[in-house]
């Protein structure tokens, strides 16, 4: 792709405008609710930026997806979720009742099922430029060729211009150079069991592996409090036993 002088000039002007805009505004931050994570983020996740969420392993896809959806719920506004059509066969179709169960109202969701990574990114670019959208969630599996540094720069620029938060969800992928504001690595975590040893609220182990404006942090163990819509500290380490609790005999 060769840019003409004309295009280059227009781009420079655009960038200059953006830099002015950036200087004038301080980004709004959305606290996660988890005190340590918020402290590491300098108050919270920056709104209107590009953030990357990586699944630790293929098996952590559900946890990473959950984390991204929970962030979307916290960020608010409508959500445009873009994924490749064939991912549904491998990772399961997005189930709207399940989205509702983690506290995101499916009425605020528009789902785009696209044929390939290139169209996913094209749709993402279009959606990220639309100020009427709250969050764009771009789900890409493995290492698609069209997703390079330039592609992430485009998304980051679009997010900063429009104020739309863009979450780039990567499954079975390794980190690569990108223009994202933060990068997260998500692993599954045993939940704090409920009565009768039932699986409890969503629990995640979340690591901030990179951020532009500060040092990395974590991993933190978090639990998603759907009813309050925040992440809270997970305290399953000591208090809960990882098995059925048996009453101890009073006298040994």
């Amino acid at each position: 792709m060769r840019a003409t002088a004309e295009q280059l000039r227009a781009l420079r002007q655009e960038v200059a405008g953006l830099e002015r805009w950036q200087a004038e505004t301080t980004p709004r931050r959305m606290p996660l609710g988890h005190a340590e994570a918020d402290a590491a983020l300098g108050g919270g996740l920056e709104v209107g930026r590009l953030h990357e969420v990586f699944a630790g392993h293929g098996a952590d896809a559900a946890s990473a997806t959950g984390f991204a959806a929970m962030l979307a719920a916290r960020l608010g506004g409508s959500l445009v979720w873009l994924r490749q059509e064939q991912v549904g066969r491998e990772g399961g179709a997005l189930h709207a009742p399940g989205l509702s169960e983690i506290g995101f109202d499916p009425a605020r969701l528009v789902l785009g099922l696209l044929p390939d990574p290139l169209t996913v990114l094209a749709a993402a670019g279009e959606a990220a430029r639309c100020p009427g959208v709250g969050v764009v969630l771009v789900e890409l599996w493995r290492m698609p060729r069209p997703l390079d540094l330039t592609a992430t720069r485009r998304l980051a620029l679009a997010a900063e211009t429009s104020g739309v938060s863009v979450l780039l969800l990567r499954v079975e992928a390794q980190a690569q150079a990108s223009a994202a504001q933060t990068r997260w690595q998500v692993h599954s975590l045993a939940s704090v069991p409920l009565e009768a040893n039932a699986p409890g609220h969503p629990a995640l182990s979340v690591e901030l592996t990179r951020q532009r404006s500060g040092p990395p942090g974590g991993p933190w163990q978090m639990e998603w409090d759907r009813d309050r819509g925040i992440f809270r500290a997970w305290d399953g380490g000591g208090a809960a036993l990882s098995g059925p609790q048996l009453p101890l005999a009073a006298h040994g």
Partner: peptide, 30 residues
């Protein structure tokens, strides 16, 4: 439980909120 329809043809519909205090009872991926 969920009907996927073309977004241009449908207005957003009301979904019942989940029951407070319960963990998610339906999966995010099906």
């Amino acid at each position: 439980a969920a009907q996927a329809v073309p977004a241009v043809a449908a207005a957003p519909a009301r979904w019942a909120p989940p029951e407070a205090g319960e963990p998610p009872l339906r999966p995010l991926h099906l």
